[in-house]
Design a protein around this nucleic acid. Structure first.
Lengths: 228, 228
DNA sequence: GAGATAATAGCACGACCGTTCGTTCTATTA
DNA sequence: TAATAGAACGAACGGTCGTGCTATTATCTC
């Protein structure tokens, strides 16, 4: 009870404890394990229902733990949402970025695109690309969650752009190509594949996206590099 | 949401009153005017908060009418959502499709693209393209709303495809072009512009989308038709 | 005018939301 | 063995949600 009115005689007037959990990130193994199990489930639900539609009560119910027990791991819904975004980022990095980590230039760019398409195709998240959904859901909601998503998306586009620029330096992509524009187009086409796949339950959606992206890359590649 | 169980213990056994309003579409002018005012506001809120985040209470409050008074116009939230989708469709048709109605072939295709980009650029909806948001929000929610959105998006893609096919017949677009694929790419690039514009508050987003689309069209156009 | 009917308001409901609280269980540590 | 701290619990809070009933008001027809 933190109502101000029915408390005429109390020793503490106006202290703000706010989120009292997870400031010390709970070194004990039990809590960490539970937290991981929560996030594993939460990221799946959030990809289907959205980050706002992800409710603490339902999440706790599917995990068969109490709502308050779950809540204590995060301290606020916003913290939970941030943690879910981080979890999704980890999965994305694992599936898309890390497998191509040793490549550079055009091969890196090609691998990032192909990995993204596989990440979408293989239903890494049951509700489709987590970030496509989250970034459209939160593009009008100021706060930490939005900032986190914006940061991640900028970083991802930056990765594409950087790979393309390296490819340019290596003579694999023509010098007159706007690599920023190229990254934008690749991202748009990939997300378009996700969109079509989800909305129309279209099996060929990612095939279309792949064809478009490969064609675009071939266009900008120098003659020696095109056609794989 | 999936309510469907607001009837725990009552005298009525299993009758389905469902939507008791708006079956007869209320010929009287007063109700229609109010209904239009509701939808005009609702479509703006929904573009910002989503169709599920659009709440009847808040909508009524911003219109300064009672919740139940508003509710009576629709009979259920799902009906309201459907009406909002229809309203958004009307606005879309007015802004994007009708101004190009007298064109055919490649000029029609170009006009549809340009009108779409203007529709996005000019903030026709305060939350960005209504259908980009709605189709990603409802791609996992079965029901009438989803079906409506799917139908509209198919129709829109069909419009693009049909214009491209006409252009092919007229010799404006090369015969070897997959017009379905072309429509997909245009739509993906346009939605990518909307995405970048919303998420990054990027003024140049639609410029990038326009450049990509124009370039793509020039690629498929026969030599006589390219460069405008 | 009176009466019918459409439009709106008032009010209450059950469900669920995020959040807080005090308590209990459990495992490590002194 | 006793003390301690983390983890999980159950109950409850104030709010808001969609929805349903009932009463009031406005408009139109006679």
């Amino acid at each position: 009870m933190k109502n101000a009115s029915p408390r005429p005689a109390a020793s503490q007037p106006a202290q703000r404890p706010a989120a009292r959990a997870t400031n010390l990130p709970s070194r004990r193994p039990r809590g960490l394990k539970t937290r991981r199990a929560i996030l594993r489930q939460a990221v799946n639900i959030a990809s289907l229902e959205g980050l706002e539609g992800l409710s603490i009560g339902k999440l706790a119910a599917t995990l068969r733990i109490s709502k308050s027990g779950l809540f204590a791991h995060f301290g606020s819904k916003e913290d939970l949402q941030c943690a879910v975004v981080d979890q999704a980022r980890d999965i994305f990095v694992e599936k898309v970025i890390r497998p191509a980590a040793q490549l550079r230039g055009l091969p890196l760019l090609r691998a990032l695109c192909e990995n993204w398409l596989c990440y979408g195709e293989q239903k890494t998240f049951p509700g489709g690309c987590f970030f496509s959904a989250a970034s459209l859901e939160f593009d009008d909601r100021p706060g930490r969650v939005r900032e986190r998503i914006v940061g991640l998306m900028k970083k991802w586009l930056g990765n594409l752009e950087h790979a393309a620029r390296d490819a340019q330096s290596a003579g694999e992509i023509r010098k007159d190509v706007d690599v920023r524009q190229l990254a934008f187009e690749i991202q748009a086409l990939a997300m378009g594949g996700n969109w079509s796949s989800r909305l129309f339950r279209d099996q060929n959606a990612f095939r279309s996206a792949r064809a478009a992206i490969l064609q675009r890359i071939d266009q900008v590649a120098t003659p020696a590099q095109s056609r794989k």
